[in-house]
Computed example of a mutant assay.
Amino acid sequence: MTGEDAVRLRPPDRALNERAVGWWRTRLLLLTGVPVLVPAVLGALLEPARPWLWGPAAALAVTGLGCAAFLPRWWFRVHRWEVTDEAVYVRTGAFWQEWRIAPMSRIQTVDTVRGPLEQAFRLATVTVTTASSKGAVRIEGLDHELAADLAERLTRITRDTPGDAT
């Protein structure tokens, strides 16, 4: 590639939808709930009662609540994405940042996914699959209507972009 054709690594400029914070927070609380409930219920229901199980349950609950209160807002600040006519850019991660670029000529498929929890928050995930061994590029936490429009736009751009996507 010449200097003009090179895809330049740069910070993507679009933030996720603000509702992603609530979605991440809910996911963390649900993931914390089972490990908290199991020892708490066992400690209460077993004969004789085993209150020593309540300590680990409380520690897990405090950790889970702390993570749910702090991490989603932080993730929202660092996760960025952008789509240009040349490439899809995604930056994720707080401590270990990962920057991914998928050139339009390498894109093979574009999918949108809306799990039950995402549907409740009116969000969707756009997955851009390339021939990369690193795997697909995912943009999570998008408004579901924006995700549908983005998938349509990416499909149109990749159709009109020369290349073999391999």
Rank of each mutant, 00 (worst) to 15 (best):
G64Q: 11
L31V: 06
V113I: 13
R80I: 08
R8E: 11
L154A: 09
L150C: 09
R8I: 15
A148K: 14
G93S: 01
I107E: 04
L60E: 03
L46M: 15
L65H: 04
E86G: 06
T26V: 09
K134L: 03
Q97A: 00
P116W: 10
V34F: 12
A59R: 12
E82A: 11
T166E: 07
I157W: 06
P35K: 00
L53C: 07
L53D: 03
V36L: 04
T125P: 04
P56S: 02
W52T: 15
L42C: 02
W24E: 05
A94I: 14
Y89D: 01
C67R: 11
T125E: 09
R100Y: 00
T129K: 03
A61D: 00
A102Q: 07
V126Q: 07
F76R: 13
A147K: 07
A58I: 15
H79T: 01
E18A: 11
I139Q: 01
V110H: 03
A124K: 12
G33T: 05
F121K: 10
H144L: 06
W23Y: 15
P11C: 00
E86T: 10
L28G: 01
A120L: 15
S133W: 02
A131C: 03
R14H: 13
A40I: 13
G141T: 07
W74M: 05
D143A: 11
L42H: 01
G64C: 11
L28Y: 00
Q108V: 12
L9C: 04
R8M: 11
P11L: 12
A165R: 15
L60D: 03
A20Q: 07
H144P: 04
P103Q: 02
L123S: 08
A58T: 14
E4H: 10
L16P: 03
G43K: 12
W99M: 10
T155G: 13
T161W: 08
D149L: 07
A61Q: 01
V113K: 14
T130A: 05
V38G: 09
G33V: 00
L65Y: 01
R10Y: 01
V78S: 01
P51N: 05
P72C: 00
R10L: 09
R122M: 10
D149Q: 14
G115N: 13
V137P: 06
T84H: 05
T109M: 10
E4K: 13
F121T: 10
V7C: 08
L150T: 12
A102R: 07
D85N: 12
W23E: 07
R80M: 05
R50F: 00
R156A: 12
M1W: 02
A165K: 15
V83A: 10
K134F: 04
V62A: 14
R8L: 11
A49K: 14
A165D: 11
S133P: 14
E82M: 09
P51G: 06
W52I: 15
A61T: 04
T26R: 09
L28W: 00
T63M: 14
Q119C: 04
P72N: 01
T166W: 08
G33I: 00
A131M: 02
R19W: 04
T109N: 13
A44T: 15
A124Q: 10
A165I: 11
V78N: 01
L150I: 11
V34E: 06
F121A: 05
A15Y: 03
R153M: 09
L37T: 08
A165C: 13
T127D: 01
V137L: 13
A147R: 08
L45T: 15
V7W: 02
T84F: 01
W23N: 12
I139R: 03
S133E: 09
M1S: 12
A40Q: 08
V41W: 08
V110D: 02
